[in-house]
Computed example of a mutant assay.
Amino acid sequence: MDAVMSSFRMDGRVALLSGAGRGIGARSALALAEAGADVVLLSRTQSQLDGVAEQVRALGRRALPLATDAADPDAVAAAVERAVTDLGRLDVVVSVTGGSTPKPFLKTSDRSLAMSFETNVIQGLRLVRNAVPHLLGSDAASIVMISSAIGHVVGRGYVGYGSGKAALDHAVRLLAAELNPKIRVNAVAPGAILTESLEVVAADPAMKQALEDATPLQRIGTVEDIAAAVLYLASPASSYVTGQVLAVDGGLAVTNMDMPFPDL
């Protein structure tokens, strides 16, 4: 039993996380720090990063908060280089980026589609491409992408977002094949998770109840649910797992947030 539990430890490892200023990224950073990892924190807002870094240091781990725009290739490359220079190594990359506003398909413009692929696919792959040369020096390298249940379930209003996340899911499989055997690549696909963006919906008791009723496990997910999955895929506990998309969505077969768009 001790051997299994110890496989979740991340002592002596360095993990870099994008989108780490709040929500899933911040909680995942804390989970990795709780397991013993030092962390590099990326997002656009320095004040948010500083708050997370303070919590990481309170756990006795090193934290390097770097305000970085994921849409800026030069800034991403510089952040990865700074991470390795300052902390000496890189073992894990967790990419938390993406999002898209639900729209009826006929109102989903070319620009909306392009932006969905930019934020949900390109930005994550850009970070990974910069990190891979450094990950090759690790004896337990792992990449974890944050996808979404909408990449594999169906619902109205999600052509842009769902197509982007579905592309990310297959990119994970393709990356795993190309980076084997030195670097493992997996993804977590969350369902409805109570982050800042969902709190507006959950604040309405009727909408919250409807969301829970449409979820087989009858509750909204938490950032801790996702952070636990990230820790599993980042740590040696999943050392025989690669090319997988782990659904952490309460058991969804269809979306529990279908948009009320009328038939054409």
Rank of each mutant, 00 (worst) to 15 (best):
D2K: 06
M5K: 11
S7Y: 07
R13T: 11
L17T: 07
S18N: 12
A20H: 11
R22G: 07
I24L: 14
G25D: 02
A26T: 08
A26K: 05
S28C: 02
L30E: 14
A31Y: 07
L32E: 06
A33P: 04
A37K: 10
D38N: 14
L42P: 11
S43M: 02
R44H: 12
S47N: 09
D50K: 03
V52R: 05
E54R: 12
Q55A: 15
V56M: 05
G60C: 02
G60D: 03
R61T: 06
R62D: 14
A63T: 03
D69G: 04
D72C: 08
V76R: 10
A77Y: 01
A78P: 10
V80D: 11
V80R: 01
E81W: 00
R82S: 11
D86M: 07
G88C: 07
R89N: 04
L90S: 02
V93W: 01
G98Y: 13
K103W: 02
K103M: 12
K103H: 09
P104H: 04
L106I: 12
K107P: 00
S109F: 10
S109I: 10
S112M: 11
S116H: 03
E118T: 04
V121R: 03
V121E: 12
L127N: 06
L127R: 06
N130W: 10
V132M: 08
L135K: 02
G137W: 10
G137N: 13
S138M: 05
D139P: 07
V144S: 08
I146N: 06
S148C: 13
A149E: 15
H152D: 13
H152K: 09
H152Q: 13
V154W: 13
V154F: 15
Y158W: 14
V159F: 09
G160Y: 04
G160V: 06
G160C: 07
Y161M: 10
Y161K: 04
S163N: 07
S163R: 04
S163W: 10
G164C: 09
K165F: 14
K165G: 14
K165Y: 13
K165V: 14
A166L: 10
A166E: 09
A167K: 01
A167L: 07
L168A: 06
L168R: 08
L168I: 13
H170V: 14
A171C: 14
I183V: 15
R184D: 08
V185M: 03
V185K: 05
N186L: 01
P190G: 03
I193V: 12
T195D: 06
E196L: 01
L198S: 03
V200N: 03
A203Y: 00
A203I: 00
M207F: 00
A210G: 15
E212L: 01
D213H: 00
R219K: 11
V223A: 01
E224S: 12
E224A: 13
I226F: 04
A228V: 00
V230F: 08
L231C: 04
L233V: 08
L233K: 02
S235C: 09
P236S: 02
A237W: 13
V245N: 02
L246A: 08
V248R: 05
D249C: 06
A253N: 08
M259S: 10
P262G: 00
